[in-house]
């Protein structure tokens, strides 16, 4: 297992390098000019100097390796300094600077990450909490009315895009009924019970939109996996031993069915972050997805590169985690 983990870690490195190169190249090959947004009164010589200072005129490979060093070495050091109050990072060292705000990209991401994590994290947990019993009961009572309705609902939840459910929720609950605010206010601080209720009210819609979408996906896997296990011989053995039905289903079958579901849950996390881009746009959450959209619209190359690369790291990391979890949870699987 350890050798497998190490080997898997080693293959993740070239993957990440390749992806970073693609991200870098796509943005570099584009014709968008970082000085295009500056006032027209700046004379061409000065404009050229600005371009020079931004390092736009270097050969592509040099730029790539400079960017990679900043991305993988300097910025993480700054991040650690920010968290622990240490000073590993070089004083006055270069950083990846946003074209739009002139501040380090990492600071922007650190500012916006908590909102995204809150919304995405709670929605994923809500999704799992909804999906698990749904999948279990659907599979246990296969072809029953509950199963028919559950399968239909999860098919609908799977097909209806989040940008429609989000807008629909706003129409119904914010415009017509007026129960919840349609805009997520991130400056709101929870200090007492009343402010907690306000927070709960504003987070409930984005979380439910993302959560229902995740639930419909996970419950399909849960149901299929439970069905695979319910007909196995060990289930008959467990029943023959005289175990209660509850123990058979919730201990024996559920534990075995969870193996593929846990990996699917891990594999889907990056996709959920991707889906959060849209949900953040619908509910005006100023998270990392909205940062990406603003950066794309403003031609802010460093922010776009960094955020895309963070998404790539998430994908590779959770793929790795899923592989390792699979081996850990299921002793029958040996990679070596």
């Amino acid at each position: 297992m350890l050798t497998f983990t190490i080997r898997r870690l080693l293959t993740a490195i070239p993957t990440l390098l390749f992806i970073s190169f693609i991200i870098f190249l796509i943005v570099k090959l584009s014709p968008s000019d970082p000085t295009a947004g500056l006032p027209l009164t700046i004379p061409p010589e000065v404009r050229e100097q600005i371009r020079e200072s931004l390092g736009v005129n270097d050969p592509v490979l040099v730029q790539y390796f400079k960017w990679l060093k900043l991305m993988l070495w300097d910025e993480p050091l700054h991040l650690i300094d920010g968290w622990l109050g240490t000073s590993f990072a070089p004083e006055n060292g270069t950083r990846i600077i946003s074209y739009q705000t002139r501040s380090p990209v990492m600071d922007l991401i650190v500012q916006r990450m908590p909102q995204t994590l809150w919304v995405v994290g709670t929605s994923y947990i809500v999704g799992i909490i909804i999906a698990m019993p749904l999948g279990i009961i659907s599979a246990y009572r296969q072809y029953s009315v509950f199963d028919q309705i559950g399968t239909f609902v999860s098919m609908v939840g799977f097909s209806v895009p989040t940008f429609f459910t989000g807008v629909l929720f706003i129409v119904i609950f914010a415009v017509q009924l007026g129960w919840f605010p349609s805009v997520y206010d991130t400056t709101h601080e929870v200090t007492d019970w009343d402010s907690f209720v306000v927070q709960l009210k504003q987070i409930i819609m984005p979380v439910m939109v993302l959560g229902l979408y995740n639930a419909s996906q996970i419950s399909r896997y849960m149901r299929a996996s439970m069905l695979d296990n319910l007909n196995q011989d060990y289930v008959r053995t467990a029943r023959a031993k005289g175990l209660t039905e509850k123990t058979v289903v919730l201990v024996h079958v559920l534990r075995n069915s969870m193996i593929p579901v846990v990996t699917v849950i891990a594999l889907n996390i990056p996709a959920v972050f991707g889906g959060a881009i849209i949900t953040e746009q619908v509910f005006k959450v100023n998270g990392i997805g909205q940062l990406l959209i603003i950066a794309i619209q403003g031609g802010d190359v460093p922010v776009v590169q960094t955020v895309s690369f963070i998404f790539a790291i998430l994908i590779v990391l959770f793929n790795l985690l899923a592989d390792i979890l699979y081996g850990l949870l299921d002793p029958r699987i040996r990679y070596d």
């Binding site: 993957t15 584009s30 991707g274 959209i293 776009v304 998430l314 994908i315």
Partner: peptide
Amino acid sequence: TDLFLALPLLPLLLVIIMLFRDQ
């Protein structure tokens, strides 16, 4: 194929469209 599966698709799609739209 594995590499393509590891790409962050939605951000990349947005970036590509933004960058190459005008040409």
